[in-house]
Simulated assay, not measured.
Amino acid sequence: MAKIGYIGLGNMGMPMAHNLLKAGYDVYGLNRSKQKEERFKQMGGNVGFSLPELVKQVDVVMTCLPLPEDVEEVILGEDGVLTHIMANQLVIDFSTVSPSLHEKIEMEAEKKRVYYVDAPVSGGTTGAEAGTLSIMVGGKAEAFEKAKPYFDVVGKNITHCGSIGMGTKVKLINNYMVGLHTIAVSEGLHLAEKAGLDRKLVYDVLTNGFAQSKIFDRHYREFIAKDIDTPGFALNLLLKDLHLADDLAKEVKATLPIATPMIEMFEKANENHYGEKDMSSLYHYVNN
């Protein structure tokens, strides 16, 4: 079995790396917070390595990081993955960043004869734990085939979307629509309460009609009904993705009239201390 280096043991990365361990892979974990590394060690993972040490010991490097600058530094930095990796190895990035950054990384990877794919995921922490994530992959066909066995462990709906960056473009459209649906849920339930309706009654009725959506189901059942602050997907990370989707729209000259007011609403929620909470907490901002 291949040795895997997994960089980024956060809310998504930890369960994904754990599933690779359970599948029999030898997984080396690296995380900024060493408490996360200790938790991964208790699961059976290998920890305690610097980035160069980790890269030199594994056959495949996977990254799952929150911000574009994190991905750029870890993979392209002076002491990053591509500085230490050997030819014919594979790098998979599960983060959500910009398509242009993936193009830049692939260009550098090709100079070292390294396979590279962008593979952003959807399905939240529940999907990460269950190994049922949707994975949208961009990259050359040969790189996708090399990565496919690992995708089969952590995901269920795996799609090769085309050349490098195409997986990320699909993911950004996905999260743009997630943002719209989140506003619809938040404002709909706010209107219901102001109109004197019980929000559970409204959820039960609407979820059996055309207003039903996976986001409505997720937000209401997993967070709003339970009033849980622990994020499955933090509001500030969705905001980051909305900015990336807006950047993509400007780059390709697509007209998105709702983008600006939507982003402004999430910006205001972030400024009002909802950023670290789950994205469904937009409901609490709207209903405040």
Rank of each mutant, 00 (worst) to 15 (best):
residue 156 K to Q: 13
residue 94 F to P: 03
residue 114 V to H: 06
residue 92 I to M: 15
residue 63 T to D: 04
residue 143 A to D: 09
residue 76 L to C: 09
residue 134 S to P: 02
residue 95 S to W: 10
residue 123 G to Q: 03
residue 112 K to D: 05
residue 89 Q to N: 14
residue 138 G to M: 02
residue 137 V to L: 02
residue 65 L to N: 03
residue 143 A to I: 09
residue 71 V to H: 03
residue 160 H to S: 11
residue 58 V to L: 11
residue 49 F to W: 12
residue 134 S to R: 00
residue 106 E to K: 12
residue 94 F to W: 06
residue 87 A to D: 11
residue 113 R to E: 13
residue 164 I to Q: 10
residue 69 E to S: 15
residue 96 T to C: 10
residue 92 I to L: 15
residue 68 P to Y: 14
residue 97 V to C: 14
residue 113 R to I: 07
residue 129 E to L: 08
residue 116 Y to V: 05
residue 61 V to G: 02
residue 146 K to G: 00
residue 73 E to I: 02
residue 104 K to V: 07
residue 119 A to K: 03
residue 83 T to P: 08
residue 66 P to Y: 09
residue 64 C to T: 10
residue 51 L to V: 02
residue 81 V to K: 03
residue 82 L to F: 11
residue 50 S to G: 14
residue 68 P to C: 12
residue 104 K to F: 06
residue 94 F to N: 10
residue 66 P to Q: 11
residue 77 G to W: 04
residue 77 G to V: 11
residue 124 G to W: 12
residue 70 D to V: 01
residue 86 M to Y: 13
residue 113 R to C: 07
residue 161 C to K: 08
residue 79 D to G: 09
residue 58 V to K: 04
residue 158 I to E: 07
residue 115 Y to N: 11
residue 142 E to S: 11
residue 138 G to V: 00
residue 85 I to R: 01
residue 99 P to M: 12
residue 95 S to V: 09
residue 122 S to H: 13
residue 93 D to N: 07
residue 156 K to T: 11
residue 142 E to R: 08
residue 63 T to V: 02
residue 101 L to G: 05
residue 165 G to D: 01
residue 118 D to M: 15
residue 59 D to M: 09
residue 161 C to N: 07
residue 152 D to F: 05
residue 90 L to A: 06
residue 96 T to S: 12
residue 161 C to P: 07
residue 70 D to H: 14
residue 129 E to N: 12
residue 165 G to M: 06
residue 156 K to G: 12
residue 64 C to Y: 01
residue 57 Q to V: 01
residue 94 F to S: 10
residue 152 D to W: 02
residue 96 T to W: 04
residue 109 A to F: 13
residue 113 R to Q: 15
residue 118 D to R: 10
residue 126 T to Y: 13
residue 163 S to P: 11
residue 58 V to R: 00
residue 138 G to K: 04
residue 134 S to F: 05
residue 82 L to V: 03
residue 50 S to W: 11
residue 163 S to F: 06
residue 88 N to Q: 15
residue 122 S to N: 14
residue 153 V to K: 09
residue 83 T to E: 15
residue 66 P to R: 07
residue 168 T to V: 02
residue 115 Y to E: 09
residue 107 M to W: 14
residue 105 I to R: 05
residue 71 V to A: 07
residue 98 S to Q: 10
residue 63 T to L: 00
